[in-house]
C-alpha cells in the first residue's frame, strides 16, 4: 500500500511514517507548506497536496492542529482512507466544519493508547467483571512542552488540555463503553509564558453512567524529566482496583551525555505500531467503522471544548451530544 503524509509538523509525523514502513508498506511522499519544516523533512519527497492525493492509497494527516480539518476533508473528498492526528480539529468552528463535511467511514483517529497490551487486558478484565461496577478513575497524561507551534493558539487552537486530555478521555470511554457528559477544568499558563496557550490543566469528567474521573494533562514535566511525559490510569470499582501503566516497562539510565536521567523502554509491545497496523488493515478492507472512529475522535474534541468552556465559566459544562 502507498501511503502519503499530509503535513509533517506534528511531533508524531516521522514516527507514524516509520511505523508504516515497519509494517511493510511504502511512504511515497509528503506535503508541507512551512519552509523550515520542509527542510527538516528528509524521509520522502515533498509534493503538493493534489499530486499527493492522486499518488497514494491512504493518507496520514500529521500537520498542525489548524491544518487538520482542511487536510482531512481534502483526503476524504478524494475518497482516500485517512489516519488523522488528534485532536481532530483545532477549535469549535473547525470541528463544526469537519462534522458537516467529512465522510466518517473513511477516517480513523490516531489515538494509540488503547492499542497497548495492558489497556486491552484492562478492557477484558472490566468486561469480565473483575472490578465489579466501575466507580471512578484517576489518570495522568503529563508531558514536557512539545515546543514550536504547540505553544501557538493560531496553530494549535489550545495548549495542554487540547494536546493530552483526548487520550485518556477516549481510553475511558472505550474501556467502559461510556460517554462523557460533563467536564470541569482548571487551566494555567505559568511554566511557558512566551506561549499564548495554557501549559497546565486538570479536568474532572462525569460520564453518562455516573462514573467520574480526573485527568491531569499538564505540560508540567520539566526539561530534566527522564522522558517526554507519562500516561497512567487507576480505576476503582466495587470489587477491585485496576492500575495501568503502559510505560512501566522501562529502565532508568543516568546519562552523562544527556546530563540527566533518561527512561529506556524495553517492551515488546509498541502501541503506535499496533495502531498503524490497524489503520493499514482498515484502509485495505474498509469495514464500516474504523478501529478508532471519527465519531470517537469528535467526542474527544467535544470533551476538550467543554473543558475550555468550563475554564471560562468556572463551572462544570455539558459536553455536546451530536
Amino acid at each position: 500500500m502507498k501511503v502519503g503524509i499530509l503535513g509533517t509538523r506534528h511531533v508524531h509525523a516521522d514516527g507514524l511514517a516509520a511505523c508504516v514502513e515497519a509494517c511493510g508498506h511504502t511512504v511515497v511522499a509528503a506535503t508541507e507548506r512551512d519552509p523550515d519544516a520542509r527542510s527538516a523533512w528528509t524521509r520522502t519527497p515533498l509534493v503538493d497536496r493534489d499530486e499527493l492525493l492522486t499518488s497514494c492509497d491512504a493518507v496520514i494527516v500529521a500537520g498542525t492542529n489548524r491544518e487538520r480539518v482542511d487536510d482531512t476533508l481534502a483526503a476524504t473528498a478524494a475518497g482516500l482512507p485517512v489516519l488523522t492526528e488528534k485532536p481532530v480539529a483545532a477549535d469549535a468552528d473547525e470541528l463544526a466544519r469537519l462534522v458537516e463535511h467529512v465522510d466518517p467511514t473513511l477516517v480513523m483517529v490516531a489515538l494509540p493508547i488503547r492499542f497497548g497490551a495492558s489497556l486491552k487486558r484492562a478492557r477484558d478484565a472490566i468486561r469480565a467483571g473483575a472490578i465489579g461496577t466501575p466507580l471512578a478513575a484517576r489518570g495522568t497524561n503529563h508531558g514536557q512542552f512539545p515546543g514550536g507551534w504547540f505553544g501557538s493558539r493560531a496553530d494549535a487552537g489550545g495548549g495542554a488540555l487540547q494536546d493530552h486530555v483526548v487520550h485518556l478521555s477516549d481510553v475511558l470511554c472505550w474501556l467502559l463503553d461510556d460517554r462523557v457528559a460533563r467536564a470541569y477544568a482548571r487551566a494555567s499558563q505559568v511554566l511557558h509564558p512566551a506561549n499564548d496557550v495554557e501549559d497546565c490543566g486538570v479536568v474532572t469528567l462525569d460520564f453518562d453512567s455516573g462514573f467520574f474521573a480526573s485527568i491531569d494533562s499538564s505540560w508540567s514535566r520539566p526539561e530534566s524529566f527522564p522522558t517526554w511525559g507519562d500516561v497512567w490510569l487507576e480505576l476503582v470499582g466495587t470489587t477491585g482496583r485496576l492500575r495501568i501503566d503502559p510505560m512501566a516497562t522501562r529502565l532508568d539510565l543516568y546519562d552523562d551525555a544527556a546530563g540527566k536521567l533518561r527512561h529506556v523502554g524495553y517492551s515488546d509491545d509498541d502501541m503506535t505500531r499496533e495502531m498503524v497496523q490497524a489503520f493499514l488493515d482498515f484502509a485495505r478492507t474498509r469495514p464500516d467503522r474504523a478501529p478508532v472512529s471519527m465519531d470517537e475522535g469528535i467526542h474527544a474534541s467535544d470533551v476538550v471544548l467543554a473543558a475550555y468552556a468550563s475554564v471560562d465559566s468556572g463551572r462544570p459544562e455539558p459536553v455536546t451530544t451530536r
Binding site: R121, A128, T239, G240, L242, I244, P246
Partner: peptide
C-alpha cells in the same frame, strides 16, 4: 512498582477469579 497491569480485589471480594488470563 513497575507493573504495566495490576489488579487487586477489595478485602472480602472474590473478584480476582473474574480476571481473565493474559491474552
Amino acid at each position: 512498582g513497575r507493573d504495566e497491569f495490576s489488579f487487586l480485589a477489595h478485602a472480602g471480594s472474590d473478584a480476582a477469579t473474574a480476571l481473565p488470563p493474559p491474552p
